[in-house]
Structure formats: structure tokens, C-alpha cells
Design a protein around this nucleic acid. Structure first.
Lengths: 249, 249
DNA sequence: ACGCGATAAATCGTACATTGTTTATAGGAA
DNA sequence: TTCCTATAAACAATGTACGATTTATCGCGT
């Protein structure tokens, strides 16, 4: 159904493990802004993703400045950064608002993921070290041990699992797109209070994936990831649709 | 060699033609910033892409403000927007610099293009109207008429050609990624003073593409685009490599 | 020649002025 | 009375000016 081959144009250096912590892959370049602007960016960003700021809520510069004990300029700076990331919208002379993370937005992100992640996976399978594989199995062990008891912990572990794979990326932009995908998913799951369905499928797919990696079977791993992303995308959207219908009805 | 199928998750509305002019696909959201900041953003952006500002050149806020007859705040705003787009880097307490568009950067962009554009093409083939096809043929006529005599005009026409295809996008993010690809290519071609090789191939590929679109042959069109992007990527990188070697030697 | 201190320059944060938008209120007509 | 409109006042975004802090540069002394 889906089938994505990786395409490499020109040679490349292997990505350092270090530039891809459990933290953001330095959105194009690290924090960049100065101390206050950057920390405000982090804070407001978390407020948006965690849902403490509602969709379409106005982001009044003077309020935010007062609340965080700074003046307005650092706030403007943070908002511009968030705008670049797509979490905030601006209307001229009317200021900023929290961008609602709607179905169209989520759908688009997942579809990009379906195109990108298999290629990253293919590269990982070819480059994975024994340490990488051991780390994957360790995390998978923790995931199965947790067994969805703590959904927050599951989400963290799942991110860790994929981070191990994508820290060996062949393409920084692609890896950043994946990270954005993750962040949006985090936002959605906070807002719509996810209960993960597909539990058995998730465990099974991860195990299958590890097997493919061990066997050096890039094609099948890529295919598996494509279906994995597609499936979870459909599930998330279905959940959003149901919730919105319930809210409207 | 490459083969990308499109994946659709959930239903969607057809993109309006109007939201995808010959102008940028409203980078996540239109201009956004206020009049002055936005126009500065445009101006500085063009200065960077057109090469009037050199790679790694310092972007001193006060200078830019004086030059454009404003105060510093709109300049800071514009620079933050450019940072979000990746054309400018920041170092805390040391300000902004023009990000050099190096081979790694270009390679990454093209590889994303290879993954994204075939999917957009597939969608276009399925949704194209007779007017779309007529427009493609009209532009193709102009391209062949020009026959690379004016390379700038060729570039404009080529962009128009692809814009016709991608204005019928199924995924806004994907279309924006394409646009970014275009902008980077424009920057590279200005800096490295392109002489387009592959002239015969470009004409031939466009004709083939139109034929596939007319026949409703999505698979072959997507495959063709994948090879088209890959080929032009390799060519661009080869050109950059040669130029850099010449400059160093 | 090399480290060290003074000076210059530019960023970053703050305070303020201006401009545009929203809201509330008063007045008038149906 | 009720609804609409016009006007004014509050509110907030945008632009300007300035001071504080950090960084870079240059020259001096050893």
C-alpha cells in the first residue's frame, strides 16, 4: 500500500549522537534568542502544548510580560519564535492568538510523517550499532513493563524509542520534521486526553521493528513504520473527530 | 529506484487555488507581522536570497534600522522571522548572521523534496482540471520559446509550472516545504551563478510529465518527479562542489 | 611577542509615545 | 421600549528612544 524508498543525494557525515538529545533537535539552530526571550519561548510553548492556554486564546503582550516579570520586548520575541513554529498566529494590529490544533493540522503532520519517517528508519537500519539495538530493546522492555499503566510514562518511553532511531539521522531537516510531529502529538494527547487504543498492535509493531533491525531488513522496517504512522494517525484523527462530535452534539 | 506512494489520512477539502499565488504560500500564516516588520522581513529576505548580503555577514540591528529608516524593534522582529525560516542564525549577545547555504543544507532540502513532491504530484494528477492542464501546456510553451535564453525568466517560468501543480495540494505543510525548496534553490542559483545543464532533459521531462497528467497516470508522474528532483539535486550539488573546489584551489 | 586594561560597539532589556482596534455608552428613530 | 448608529473612552499593538550589560578591539606596558 505504502512504499517509501530512501533517496540520498551526495555524501554526508554521520550525525553525532550528541546533537539529538532527549531534547528538541535545536530547531534549525539551538535556542538562539537571548536568555529571557528564550526562556519565555520555552515557557509559553509548554503552556500551549500542555493546554494551559486554550485554543484561540489571545496572547496579550503586556499581560504575559507582567506575568513573567519582564518587559514587552522579550515577549514579542518569544511570540515571533512560536509563530515561526506554527503554534501562534498573528493578525496585524490585533496581536497573537494560540493556534488551534485542529484535524487538518494533525492530518497534515501525520501525512508528512508517513513520507519522512520510513526514510529515516531505512537509514537507521543500515547504520545501527549493537549498542543502538541494545538500547532499543532496553526501552522496549520498559515499555512492556509499564504496559500502559502510566500513559505519560508510555509517551516518554515511546519518544525515547524513536529518538534512538532518529538520532542516527541522515538529514537534519527530516529529523526536525519528526520532532515537530512528536510535539503536535503531545499537544493533541493533552487536549483530548488520550486513551491509547491499539495497545497490542503497538507492542507487536515495536517487536517486529526490532526484529527487522536485527536482521538488517531495511525495506520491511520502513514499510512497517509507514503503516505504524498511518495507523496511529488514523486513530488519533478518529479520536479527535469523536470528541468534537460529542462536544458539538 | 525511487518509488513514493501517496498516503491520505482522513478526508479533506480541496485547496482553493487562491491561497497559492505566485507568491509564498503564506508561511504557516500570511505575513503576520505588522506592516513595518513584515516589509523589512521581505526586504532583508530578498537581500539574503539574492546574495546582496554575503554568507556569514553580520546583521547589525542598528545599521539595518538606519538603512531602512526605522527604529530597531521592527528589525529585530524581521530577524526573528528569518531565523524561524532558517535564513539567519543567532548567537546570544552577539547578534545575527546570514546563514551560509552550504552543501549539507541544500542536500537536505532536496532529499525532503524527493520524498514530498511525488506525493503532491500524485494528488495533482488525480485532481487536475482541463484548465490546469491547459495552463501547464501554455507555460511549457513559453519555457520552450524562451529556450534558456534568459535564465532568470526560465526560473520564473519553471516556478510557475510547478506552482500550477502544487496549488492543488492536498497538504499545506507539504506545499510549504516545496516552496522552501524553491527559495533555497533560488538562493543557490544566485550565489553560484547557475548555468543550467540538463537542458534537453528538463524539456523532455516536462513534456513527459504533461503526457502522464493527461493520461491520468499518477504512478508514472510521481516516479518521474522523483527522478527529476533527484537529478536536479545531484546536479546542483555537483556544481556547488566544483565551485567550492575552484575557490579553495 | 604576549597578556592586560581601557575604550568602542552592539545587543538586550526597559520605559514611553503613537496608532489602531475594540468596547461601552448615549442619542435618536421606528 | 427596542434596535441601530455614532461617538468617545479604554485597551492593546506597534514604533521610538534610551540605559545597562556584554562582547570585541586596540593600544599599552612588561
Amino acid at each position: 500500500m505504502i512504499s517509501v524508498k530512501m533517496c540520498m543525494i551526495g555524501e554526508r557525515a554521520l550525525a553525532e549522537t550528541s546533537d539529538f538529545k532527549a531534547e528538541p533537535p535545536e530547531g534549525i539552530d539551538a535556542l538562539g534568542a537571548s536568555s529571557e526571550g528564550a526562556s519565555l519561548y520555552q515557557l509559553i510553548r509548554e503552556d500551549i502544548i500542555e493546554g494551559r492556554l486554550a485554543a484561540n486564546e489571545r496572547l496579550v503582550v503586556t499581560d504575559l510580560a507582567r506575568r513573567h516579570g519582564t518587559s514587552t520586548n522579550p515577549v514579542r520575541e518569544a511570540l515571533q519564535l512560536l509563530r515561526g513554529e506554527g503554534f501562534v498566529t498573528f493578525v496585524p494590529n490585533r496581536g497573537a492568538r494560540v493556534r488551534p490544533i485542529d484535524q487538518d493540522f494533525v492530518r497534515d503532520i501525520y501525512e508528512i510523517g508517513v513520507l519522512i519517517e520510513p526514510a529515516l528508519t531505512r537509514w537507521f537500519v543500515n547504520m545501527a550499532t549493537v549498542e543502538d539495538i541494545a538500547e532499543l530493546e532496553r526501552i522496549q522492555g520498559l515499555i512492556e513493563e509499564n504496559n500502559f499503566a502510566d500513559t505519560f510514562r508510555h509517551s516518554e518511553l515511546d519518544t525515547a524509542f524513536h529518538t534512538v532511531m532518529y538520532q542516527r539521522h541522515y538529514n537534519r531537516h527530516a529529523a526536525e520534521l519528526w520532532w515537530k510531529h512528536r510535539e503536535v502529538l503531545r499537544a493533541v494527547s493533552r487536549r483530548f486526553n488520550f486513551t491509547l487504543a491499539r495497545r497490542a498492535a503497538i507492542i507487536r509493531e515495536h517487536r517486529e521493528l526490532i526484529a527487522h533491525v536485527k536482521a538488517g531488513n531495511a525495506d520491511e522496517a520502513a514499510e512497517l513504520i509507514a503503516r505504524h504512522v498511518e495507523g496511529s494517525g488514523r486513530h488519533v484523527l478518529e479520536h479527535m473527530r469523536a470528541r468534537n462530535a460529542a462536544r458539538a452534539g
